[in-house]
Design a protein around this nucleic acid. Structure first.
Lengths: 335, 335
DNA sequence: CTGAAAGCGCTTACAG
DNA sequence: CTGAAAGCGCTTACAG
């Protein structure tokens, strides 16, 4: 673990001054091609590695992006994070990812740490109950930050918000079931009072109201376990319900498992539409209808929007809603 | 976005020299408590943020760990990465995560980038077909690195390897099915010649050989889609097979879906054991028996092993195999 | 196009 | 316990 060569070593080896080496490093057009080649040869020979700490110290912007995710184990967020990270990587940016596990304290801690590391931007899918402290620190540090998927700080003029058009998704799913002849449709899952629950359910509420159908909501955690319980619950206490829009695919998949246990035929006896369209939807039996959020594209677009901001100073709109689509499959259409 | 205060500003504000501030920053015991308090008050008042680039430049080790994952979208790797990241975070280390998507070129690129950022260690679940270039660069940079889950570089004395005891897992799963009376057991899934496939299958092969039972292997991608196809395939062309050890839970879950489609009762007509024990196993119907790998613990232990290495200079063993357990559920035991 | 010089914000001996 | 000084490896004007 001997000392690494510096630009001075490279300069000596190539027979130029260290400024010239620095210029080559920055791809300056001002350096003669032959000189550039000499320098590059020297760097290769000496096994030179660029020291970003030194560069950052002198004022050059770092190419580090902080990506903070409330629940990295959830496939939906994983997909988002992986897509964003790869989009950043394609443009030469490195990503520091942290999972906060919905813990506001961890969130503050990782934000502080990333600020110290000099990240040049934040993309945050925040934990709920985040204290204002989290965003305050970012604001004081003057670092551009976007909130995605959950709007915690109301000042979207400071922290632009990007998410998916959940309300429309809920509406389209509900209308789809009505078009199939369903009248007794429930909305299953989602923790009460959470913005995302409210958004997804608002579309359902609105369409049901338009048709003057009665709404039913069984709130609950967005998990398979809750979905399974909900299926059993509906079967014993809400016999009239014969179709559901689920808060998430995990809930819908749990319901699929629950109905399989008690022998209810999903797709004919009972129709289900999930939400998110995770990969598994097209692979389970029966195939699960779902509102596709195209998380991968969303992650990529968010990354690019952020790069536009920090590179070209083109600030994203205060609020951006990406389109969602209904993917109809066996669980609502039948076999 | 005004300039941030430096230790010099803090020193002035607190009426001490900047060395003293630096000492406080490093929690040196040499500073008087009252002085420390003054300095801390000044830092709070000025909204001081520590500049790690500057510190790193002067020689202090960075607290950055590079975590490189071949497929971050796979829940198994997500779980590993999230656990490792959180274990690092608990000890005050930040993690740069990159997903290589099995692309050796991206892998080389992110390794280079992380070296430039001065990561003080690498934990790598490498892409297959990685050129030796990837590890060579790390070696030349003299950065401690562990390979996990896949051993690409044979020099485990340089790059310690940590994984799970897959061979024993395969053996235990097979023996479990034999204990239940099965004789015609196949091993389903896993790409041929991949080390992990060979390891997981070797346990199966060995136990089958001990009992002088005939082995059957249907290789294939570790995906739900392949599992579903394999179920149909077995049903039409391998009628005698009535039990399987699957390469992964995804394959097993796919088979569950496939058998559901064609009306085969899993748990009685046919027994299935998966591999990995992802969360979903205990939530599908029928509950899926699986070889539990305890990925979360593995991720945490790996992180701690790495910290022992870089903090206390306690190098991990060349090869480490973490224990796996069979979790028997309905898909093998019956309802 | 290239060189010499100053300085980014810290840490590290070294005196006191 | 605290101060003054040097230096980490770069970048950035500024001359030439």
């Amino acid at each position: 673990m001997k000392k690494r060569p510096t630009i001075l070593d490279v300069a000596r080896h190539a027979g130029v001054s260290k400024s010239t080496v620095s210029l080559v490093l920055q791809n300056s057009p001002v350096v003669r091609d032959t000189t550039r080649r000499d320098v590059e040869k020297a760097m290769a020979a000496l096994n030179y590695v660029y020291n970003r700490s030194a560069a950052g110290l002198r004022g050059a912007a770092t190419d580090l992006i902080g990506l903070i995710i409330n629940d990295l184990r959830n496939p939906f967020f994983t997909e988002f994070a992986a897509s964003a990270q790869m989009a950043f990587a394609r443009k030469g940016y490195s990503t520091v990812i942290a999972n906060t596990d919905e813990d506001p304290d961890i969130q503050v801690q990782v934000i502080d740490s990333m600020i110290e590391h000099g990240v040049s931007a934040f993309v945050i899918s925040p934990a709920y109950d985040a204290t204002p402290a989290a965003f305050e620190r970012i604001e004081r540090a003057g670092i551009p930050a976007m909130q995605v998927l959950r709007q915690i700080d109301p000042r979207t003029d400071v922290f632009p918000f990007a998410s998916l058009d959940y309300a429309t998704g809920g509406a389209v799913a509900t209308q789809h079931l009505i078009d199939l002849g369903c009248r007794h449709i429930a909305f299953i899952g989602g923790l009460e009072d959470r913005p995302i629950t409210l958004e997804r359910r608002s579309g359902y509420n609105q369409v049901m109201a338009e048709h003057q159908f009665k709404t039913t909501h069984l709130p609950g955690r967005p998990s398979r376990a809750f979905g399974r319980d909900a299926a059993l619950e509906l079967n014993s206490h809400h016999k009239s319900i014969n179709a559901v829009v689920c808060f998430s695919d995990l809930v819908a998949l749990g319901m699929l498992a629950g109905f399989a246990e008690i022998g209810v035929q999903v797709g004919s006896d009972f129709r289900i539409v999930g939400f998110d369209d995770i990969e598994e939807c097209s692979l389970v039996y029966p195939r699960l209808s779902s509102v596709r959020c195209n998380t991968a594209l969303f992650g990529e677009d968010t990354a690019n929007a952020m790069l536009d901001w920090i590179v070209d100073d083109k600030r994203p709109p205060d609020t951006q809603r990406y389109k969602v689509d209904l993917i109809a499959r066996q669980s609502s259409l039948g076999a």
